[in-house]
């Protein structure tokens, strides 16, 4: 019997009687990270990595019954031994390792291997079966260095400032926004303004000791001029809303892995697209699969079809797992 199976409520471990990132309420849920497609409300008891607990409470309710686990610390649930390991995706994001009678399964959740000063770096975990995300499983996806991207963002901000314009940078409010704030420290000490949705989350990152540029909420100013030269970070959903009016004529940018493709850059109608993803690119996916030493790979999210076919052609056992997980950048836009 498989250690983890797909049910209508999500991934389920029968030996431990718990779900992983369930999409409907269940008695016990192990959460890989707090993005909305992985952490949903209504379950009885949540388990998450300690630094992710405040984010979960911020998103799902202050009184959430949530048990914190440090990376590497293990917990017995039924016959299963469960531990969480760094996924490098956002603060508190974890891979879930499940061991039952010597057999090991790892669920990566969302992960990346690129540098990110806001969270613990990804660690490879060996296993028999690996359930991996495949959001960007095509060899066209190779992320540029975050330093290059941060330098681009900074240059764009300065160019707008020189024209007396504000720069509104759209990034997902949890994870991406804070990663940008941290990466920009290499270029400036200037204060950045935040959309209300990013304020409490950024505070949680600060409380966890993550170093970032100083921030302030972007409150409506009396004089429009006040925003000239400012960088404002906002979730993509704020684009085109009345909230944007206060900035007058401003430059708009969007941070996402999807911005690698010219078609996406143009279609979305932002002035600039910055290639910045919190998901694994193609080389990172292959490296992770190799280092896991897994004999069986199950792929979820995005282009799992491609990954599975590619692995099979390379002699590996691989299958698709149809979950309801999505990509936060796309979810935020629709």
């Amino acid at each position: 019997m498989p250690l983890v199976e797909l049910t209508d409520k999500g991934l389920y471990c029968p030996a431990g009687d718990f779900h992983i990132d369930p999409w409907r309420p269940v008695p016990r849920a192990v959460i890989t990270h707090a993005h909305a497609d992985h952490a949903r409300p209504g379950s009885g008891l949540y388990f998450a990595e300690t630094s992710g607990v405040p984010i979960l409470r911020q998103r799902l309710g202050a009184d959430l019954a949530c048990h914190g686990l440090a990376y590497g610390e293990s917990l017995e649930l039924g016959r299963a031994r469960v531990s969480l390991h760094p996924a490098g995706h956002i603060l508190g994001s974890a891979q879930v390792r499940i061991e039952v009678d010597g057999e090991v399964w790892v669920i990566t959740g969302d992960f990346k291997r690129d540098r990110d000063p806001t969270c613990t770096a990804f660690e490879s975990v060996t296993c028999d079966t690996l359930i991996t995300e495949a959001t960007f499983a095509l060899p066209i996806y190779r992320w540029p260095e975050i330093d290059t991207v941060a330098a681009d963002i900074h240059r764009w901000w300065q160019a707008n400032a020189q024209q007396g314009r504000a720069s509104v940078l759209f990034c997902y409010a949890l994870g991406k926004a804070q990663r940008v704030l941290a990466a920009l420290m290499a270029h400036t000490e200037q204060r950045v303004l935040l959309h209300g949705a990013a304020v409490p989350l950024t505070q949680i990152y600060r409380d966890a000791g993550v170093a970032m540029l100083p921030t302030e909420p972007a409150l409506e100013a009396e004089v429009e001029k006040k925003f000239a030269g400012e960088l404002i970070i906002a979730p993509p959903g704020a684009n085109g809303t009345a909230w944007m009016k206060r900035f007058g004529d401003c430059g708009t940018g969007f941070c996402s892995g999807w911005m690698l493709l010219r078609g996406n850059r143009r279609r979305r109608g932002y002035d600039r697209g910055f290639v910045l993803s919190d998901h694994a690119d193609w080389p990172a996916l292959l490296q992770t699969i190799e280092q896991s030493h897994a004999q069986h790979v199950l792929a979820t999210h995005g282009r799992s079809d491609i990954l599975v076919r590619y692995l099979r052609e390379h002699g590996m056992r691989a299958d698709e797992l149809r979950t309801e997980f999505g990509d936060e950048d796309l979810a935020a836009e629709s």
């Binding site: 999807w258 493709l261 010219r262 078609g263 143009r266 279609r267």
Partner: peptide
């Protein structure tokens, strides 16, 4: 799916 700039939709 569209082509070019609309390839993902």
């Amino acid at each position: 799916a569209g082509s070019g700039r609309r390839a993902t939709l």
